[in-house]
């Protein structure tokens, strides 16, 4: 049994809460669709699919960075030169992750602009309402994730001991969940909205 790790437990519990809230939105959407005789489907902007790739890619690069940080114990006995080289490597992948994550949000912004240019606004149709609510709330959660990535980076710079590695592990779980949540939402949006 793994030793207790409150950061990881906390993230999983938090993910439980986020899942519940998106389940609530999803069921609200299904009920709402049932009460409307005509539910206008929206043609999703293609950029949403590219955004999904960007977010999944950021998950992969985050894992590449984490592999190069490793545990605090596997660096014991390495020479400072090897450590410095590894440090450059993880920081490279970490920066890529941050760039991709911001890129995702910018991409979502373009998707909203595209729909707005087609006359789909928050209040113009029920399907549009749910589109904006679901995507905006996901973006808000991603924004929180970027904050967490920056916080983990600060911890790693200050001290790359076990605590920082734990924090990063917890943030990574959340970040992967964000990608999974977006894939789920994309399926929901493509099928229902």
């Amino acid at each position: 049994m793994a030793p207790p790790n409150p950061a990881r437990t906390g993230v999983w519990v938090g993910i439980g809460a986020v899942i519940m809230s998106f389940a609530a939105y999803t069921s609200a959407m299904i009920v709402r669709q049932g009460t409307t005789p005509e539910w206008h489907h929206i043609a999703l902007p293609p950029i949403l699919y590219w955004n999904a790739l960007v977010l999944v890619a950021s998950s992969v690069t985050l894992e590449l960075a984490r592999q190069r940080i490793g545990g605090p114990f596997d660096r014991l006995g390495r020479t400072p030169a090897v450590q410095a080289a590894k440090s450059r490597e993880w920081q490279f992948w970490y920066r890529i992750t941050l760039v991709l994550s911001v890129g995702f949000l910018v991409g979502q912004f373009f998707a909203w602009r595209r729909l707005a240019s087609e006359g789909v606004y928050l209040a113009s149709s029920p399907s549009g309402s749910f589109f904006y609510v679901l995507t905006a709330l996901h973006a808000l959660h991603v924004l929180g994730g970027i904050g967490a990535l920056l916080y983990a980076l600060r911890c790693l710079h200050a001290d790359d001991g076990p605590r920082s590695v734990n924090v990063l592990g917890a943030v990574a779980v959340y970040w992967h969940f964000m990608a999974a949540l977006w894939v789920y939402l994309l399926v929901i949006l493509a099928l229902w909205i």
Binding site: V13, A17, S21, A23, A24
Partner: peptide, 10 residues
């Protein structure tokens, strides 16, 4: 945790 996660969206 479950209950307030649903009231918040509402």
């Amino acid at each position: 945790l479950i209950a307030f996660s649903v009231l918040l969206p509402a």
